[in-house]
Design a protein around this nucleic acid. Structure first.
Lengths: 296, 296
DNA sequence: GTTTTTGATGCATAATAGGTATCATGAAAA
DNA sequence: TTTTCATGATACCTATTATGCATCAAAAAC
């Protein structure tokens, strides 16, 4: 015979009442049934849980230990059932969200905050990652939603623009361009650039390089950093200049000068992307939520 | 129908194997039995836990939630059974120990340390209290063992001496007795005394007063503090002198002078006491442990 | 002394779980 | 294509387990 939740339920009521007859009434079963169940429980545990006589029933020390533990088990069971039901109807769950530096510096925080207000049961698990990584993770079902750079038009993916950034040029204080009110791309042809590694930042380069090519040059990348904070750090050290977005610049600590680029009208888009066949309820809810948002 | 631990056990194995036939083999039951148990579980939860087809079985989000919760419930059940068994054989449990200032300043710490080494499963819960309080708590089953001052010879109680203290006189620095190497009781007849309140310190007074009477005076208590630290504090402020033990003196911070009392040979005993009819295993174990100790 | 109340027990019944045989369906093999 | 194989689901019967009723033995209440 095995101990089941039934034994625990009966035991706990008896441990409260300390009277077989009353406990059996509370449980809506007969008194012999309760006696038997407790006997079986004690036999299976090979432990006496109650001292009984015709006058009194009281818990042994072991009984008190079992009482505490039993309560925890029953509460845990109830909580599990409740959570499972709520997950199934979308009231609870987890949403794995990937984000780039551009997204976290821009619209993402406010979006997640609003989503949390609307769906307080959904736990958002954010994972930082560049665009390429996120697209892989989406396909490997490591991510539900990715916030990535640049338009993605792959079969199987759906997306929605959530953010438009105007790129700006960022130079260190004291740089020969630092006194300018604005620059053109052509002004930057001879400059050293600091940026991220080519593979990881492919989507950003896809946006920037054509613009530079149109201006008649290819940016000379002389230093690579692993994220935009690192890039800004290298720029402020005077290793070169960079082109990023205004929101990223706002994250920097100082020693940097932002310059508008007058001859770029193209914006750099940040998109939310997800797999069309992602059927998870939290994902659906986030997609629906996104559809209701007005994005400038 | 009610959800039981059986459902969870079966569910967890299936969630690992994701194959009904293999899971049923691991569980040593037939495949139809497993199929129906899972069906019953899902019906009771009103939640789909697995997506099934002839090709694959996989967990739904709700299934994953139930998996986590179910694991916790099962672990909790196992832990509870284990703890209960250990409590019943005395490998685990709690021992409520009362102690006086004299005990905690003397032999108690070492005793508890040794007991813990011998019975690592027993959690010692110490409660500070004067002798009178502890005796009440023992009788109300609020305490298992009391460490109290002075011999107790009440019916129902058993005891064992654990500590003998020679009382010393403690005076503040600069006191007119502070230069003496030792004092006699008679030297103290005209002094102001600081001590604890009469009711709570009854047992201490029972020891001290007869000695003073023999020396021909009754100590004049001019200040009361609630514990020995407070008493020593008042003494160091010059409010009076006191008679305590050397171990208590060692707890003081300074500004005090200890003086042996040459004409007291009677020691002040600290005893462990317990009710004869306390049947709790941890208590028995502590009593047995005490019996094995050599007490000076 | 009688009645009432307590927990325990014997026995029959009801509810639940399990096993065997079998089906329907889709994938892989021939 | 047809055949074979593996999958999960279902039908039907059996074994196990839980329950209720009637009753007992012992102690307390009256």
């Amino acid at each position: 015979m095995k101990i089941g939740l039934r034994h625990i339920r009966y035991f706990l009521v008896l441990a409260d009442d300390l009277n077989f007859r009353r406990a059996s009434e509370h449980l809506h079963i007969s008194q012999p049934a309760l006696t038997r169940t407790i006997q079986h429980l004690e036999a299976e545990l090979k432990v006496l849980l109650f001292e009984r006589s015709q006058n009194f029933v009281r818990l042994t020390d072991a009984g008190r230990a079992f009482q505490e533990g039993g309560r925890r088990v029953l509460n845990g069971m109830e909580a599990t059932i409740d959570l499972t039901r709520r997950v199934s109807i979308g009231e609870a769950g987890a949403l794995r969200v990937g984000y780039t530096d551009f997204a976290i510096a821009g619209a993402l925080p406010e979006l997640l905050k609003q989503f949390h207000q609307k769906h307080p049961g959904i736990t958002v698990r954010p994972h930082h990652g560049v665009t390429a990584t996120q697209l892989e993770e989406l396909q490997d079902d490591k991510l539900d939603i990715g916030f990535i750079t640049g338009p993605v038009r792959h079969p199987g993916f759906q997306s929605r623009v959530v953010q438009n950034d105007r790129p700006i040029c960022i130079v260190p204080e004291g740089h020969h361009l630092a006194m300018r009110r604005s620059v053109t791309l052509a002004d930057l042809a001879e400059e050293d650039f600091v940026h991220g590694p080519a593979e990881a930042w492919a989507h950003f380069y896809d946006y920037l390089f054509p613009l530079c090519r149109r201006a008649g040059f290819q940016p000379r990348i002389v230093q690579e950093a692993f994220n935009s904070v690192g890039i800004l750090g290298l720029v402020s050290c005077g290793m070169g200049i960079t082109i990023l977005t205004e929101s990223i610049y706002d994250f920097a600590t100082g020693g940097l000068v932002p310059l508008p680029i007058s001859d770029i009208s193209e914006v750099m888009v940040t998109e939310a992307v997800w797999l069309s066949d992602n059927l998870r309820l939290p994902t659906q809810q986030f997609v629906d939520f996104l559809a209701q948002q007005d994005i400038g």
